[in-house]
Amino acid sequence: MKLKSLIRHETFLALMLVTALIVLAFQSDRFFTVSNLLNQGRLMTEVGLIAIAMTFVIATGGIDLSVGSILGLVAILTGVFWNNIGLPLPFAAIAAIFVGTMAGFGNGIIITRFGVPPLIATLATLALYRGLAEGISQARSVRGYPDWFYVLGQRDVLGVPTQLWILMAVAVIASVILAYTTWGRTVYAIGSNEVASRFSGLSVEKTKLALYTLSGFAASVAAVIFVSRVSTTRSDMGSGIELDAITAVVLGGTSIYGGRGTVLGTVIGLCLIQALKNGLSLAGVKGDGTIMLIGAVLILAILASNIFERSGTRN
């Protein structure tokens, strides 16, 4: 692992973020305010949670495309367990999160036990889990949650949106785990060379199983927060969120081939995307212009990072 090159990409990205913040602040005086920035934190929590888990998955050289569908499934189950089966809402949410985590575990089993490449396995479960969400819900929404439930998605704790606390806590814990624990090093080792890791006695299969389970768990927690934020459940929730999460992860410098990447990079990548979406909108750029610019930034950031990193020999 080349620690230097890692730091270089993140420094570069952080510089881009600062530049973006400054430029956007000059474009609109409503951009760089505490309330606006905190509000952006609220809006990016779901994709943030998923992207952090995705960082681990991609660092092993894998990918999880089914997260959006797991999000939809858990959202639907939260509503169905509570409304149709009659569980108290906290238990309904926990039960739904459990099922979503098991859905992630299912991905892990298909990938590790059956040896199906992650992209294929999660492409298949992407269709399956979304289908289950639609079938179980019969396309009906569940609404009318009790008021306390909205604390999670729509209220503040100590002046900061509730879910932002969760995102920050998860980001800190995840970056410590990835950077400083044996387990984190195992993740990088698998991504750098899976065969060698296996021969050197690392528990490759167990680690991968745990990661896909965690990815399912992250998508499930994101689902409950999402339901609380928008106060309804629909089976099409979270469709396409996997690409947003992957964009943040690769923008953050995680190699899609595995072996390198940091949670910090992912978080900076997330903030950059969110800042662009929000700031450009405030500056009067329309949504279609904004997504074009984000696409260009993604390519240019990785391109620039490759150019600066002269020793660009790995692929």
Binding site: M292, G295, I299
Partner: peptide, 10 residues
């Protein structure tokens, strides 16, 4: 991924 955003938005 970048090209997708650019083409779609464009």
């Amino acid at each position: 991924l970048g090209a997708m955003s650019i083409l779609r938005g464009g």
